[in-house]
């Protein structure tokens, strides 16, 4: 328990530091918000001053950061410079699509990545070669290309799945997001399947597994309790980093499939220099990354008593 608490404090510190980087980073980029607000028109210095005063752009940098941070802690990310909408409301309307897409992709990664990896490791021959080939393909094919191929094949030609929009209600969403989720998960499935295959193979040759076989433990139990369970240690880490990266790589897919998630919102906002929105999305991504890593580390402790007990001693 103490360990979890420590990790949460650490996560809060990471968020604090990244909030500063996110906030200041926006000011390092060329161009300033007031220039965007006047949209290239020539305006009198008085108008410019008024705008600067309205958005608090004349305050010292650290004061602006502090004010922003306090607002963020109260859940107020400010207003979009572009639409004048509340940023929290804007993100709230976009987040479900992205989270649904990422969760869908995560499930595919775990089920297909681990499943195919285990099958490839336990039955050699043609099936293994297919998985290894598919895995190489997954490494090599860029996400947007996979998206295009899926759209052309299953969307346009076969007409099985829609190629745009995110759907209403659960079943419709699943149907709409199937192709995007596959495209998004494809590279990660390839990585996870490959790592799983290697890890299971390695574990099969390990001393305790050979010993279990020599003790006459039934095959099914040797495979499940000893081989697969123990090989999940390295696999968990890989799955975690891949799932954590999903939110960040979702923007390509959201763009390709015209989904109104936070990925496409981020792309738009960066182009339009909509500071408040970009800052909010960046922070959400850091938070998601941190949380997923925390979950992975906790899982690690559940799987491996050596990790758990070492922590108990040090805590």
């Amino acid at each position: 328990m103490l360990y979890v608490l420590k990790r949460l404090v650490a996560l809060a510190l990471v968020l604090l530091v990244s909030s500063f980087i996110v906030f200041s980073g926006m000011y390092l980029a060329p161009g300033s918000p007031e220039q965007f607000l006047v949209q290239g028109r020539t305006v009198s210095p008085e108008v410019l001053d008024a705008i600067r005063a309205q958005y608090g752009l004349d305050d010292p940098f650290l004061v602006r950061y502090w004010n922003w941070l306090i607002d963020v802690l109260h859940g107020d990310f400010g207003r979009s410079l572009l639409t004048q909408q509340d940023v929290s409301t804007l993100i709230e309307s976009r987040l479900p699509t992205t989270l649904f897409l990422a969760a869908y992709a995560a499930i595919l990664i775990v089920l297909l990545g681990v499943g195919l990896g285990i099958l490839a490791a336990t039955r050699s021959g043609a099936f293994e070669k297919v998985v290894v080939f598919g895995s190489n393909l997954g490494f090599a094919v860029p996400t947007f290309f996979a998206a295009l191929v899926l759209m052309a094949l299953f969307g346009a030609n076969l007409g099985w799945f829609p190629v745009s929009g995110s759907g209403e209600g659960f079943a419709d969403r699943v149907w709409h997001l199937t192709l995007p989720a596959i495209a998004l998960a494809f590279p990660a499935i390839a990585v996870v399947a490959r790592i799983t295959r290697t890890a299971v193979r390695e574990e099969q040759g390990s001393e305790h597994v050979v010993m279990a076989v020599a003790r006459g433990v039934p095959k099914r139990i040797v495979l499940g309790r000893h081989t697969i369970r123990n090989s999940m240690l390295p696999v968990t880490t890989v799955i975690g980093t891949n799932i954590a990266g999903l939110l960040a790589s979702a923007f390509v897919i959201e763009y390709a499939f015209t989904l109104d998630g936070i990925g496409s919102l981020l792309v738009n906002s960066v182009q339009k220099k909509d500071f408040a929105v970009v800052q909010a999305i960046a922070l959400i991504m850091v938070l998601a990354f941190g949380l997923i890593n925390l979950i992975v580390d906790l899982l690690y402790a559940v799987i491996d008593p050596r990790v758990r007990l070492a922590r108990e001693v040090s805590a």
Binding site: S206, E207, H208, M211, A212, R225, H226, R229, N230, I303, D304, P305, R306
Partner: peptide, 10 residues
């Protein structure tokens, strides 16, 4: 090696 013979996580 008994440490190798037993599954380390059980």
């Amino acid at each position: 090696n008994p440490h190798g013979a037993l599954n380390p996580v059980l």
